[in-house]
């Protein structure tokens, strides 16, 4: 246990050596500090979602256009690899913080109530999704493993990439199409994306509050913006699954 936490805290201890950062690293370790880091990593992951969806919407523009986008992205070489490593680090940081704060929360109430009720307006949306952050987070994590296996490593055993390679039609567009029209896999995508929508429907709004962005005049708008962001992103990705299904029928 001791050596595990020593290894996990290594990045933090190295950062603390940078002049001026010592007190910041120390402050980041508290419950409030960890939540602020969760909000920052969550927002950065949201930034990734925007660029990722924007690129993928080129699937609507057809095979040639999408393959061209994929090739130009791949031509970045090591820069792309560095970005991927950064993205992985963001996910690991966000998940690590999730585990740490969730453990804190469980410890804080070892003895549960026999009966527990809420005084919040039951129709208010924010209270609902906030109880599902861990569950939806775990679903997203599983989805990410599936997704990287499918699209990045092209190693999903239920997708027949080989046939396309054999008949010479293999391309980035073709691979995406094969993955999204694989019955079992497409349901994995639907479940994963809905989990993402629920996660973000609380997460985005929560992150504003955690970062101290709150004002009576703007809070109503932030509520709407959070929901809008969550479901536009989710429906955007879901529409690509539907698009692939429609194309395979026609």
């Amino acid at each position: 246990m001791g050596s595990v936490s020593r290894i996990l805290s290594l990045p933090a201890r190295l950062l603390a050596q940078v002049p001026g950062l010592g007190p910041v690293v120390q402050a980041a370790a508290t419950s409030v500090g960890q939540k602020i880091l969760m909000a920052v990593t969550g927002f950065l992951l949201c930034g990734f979602l925007v660029t990722h969806l924007a690129g993928n919407l080129l699937l609507y523009a057809g095979e040639e256009r999408f393959n061209h986008y994929a090739e130009s992205l791949h031509s970045w070489g090591v820069v792309l690899n560095a970005a991927e490593a950064g993205l992985l680090a963001l996910f690991l940081a966000h998940i690590g913080l999730a585990i740490s704060t969730t453990a804190m929360n469980r410890q804080a109430r070892r003895h549960r109530y026999a009966e527990k009720d809420s005084k919040q307006d039951p129709t208010a949306i924010p209270g609902g999704a906030s109880s599902w952050m861990v569950v939806t987070g775990i679903l997203i994590a599983f989805f990410l493993i599936l997704h990287v296996t499918d699209m990045r490593l092209k190693m999903n055993p239920v997708v027949d990439y080989e046939a396309a390679v054999q008949d010479g039609t293999m391309s980035e567009f073709r691979a995406v199409h094969l993955v999204l029209t694989s019955y079992a896999t497409s349901w994995g995508y639907v479940v994963g994306l809905i989990a993402l929508g629920i996660h973000l429907s609380h997460g985005v709004r929560s992150a504003f509050q955690t970062l101290g962005i709150s004002h009576p005049r703007w809070n109503g708008l932030l509520d709407i913006a959070g929901q809008l962001f969550a479901w536009v992103i989710t429906l955007g990705f879901l529409s690509l699954v539907v698009l692939a299904a429609l194309r395979s029928v026609s």
């Binding site: 419950s31 804190m104 804080a108 109430r109 005084k119 906030s130 109880s131 952050m133 609380h202 929560s206």
Partner: peptide, 10 residues
Amino acid sequence: GFGACTNTSE
């Protein structure tokens, strides 16, 4: 030993 805030507003 208090927990962290999930912004549930309960």
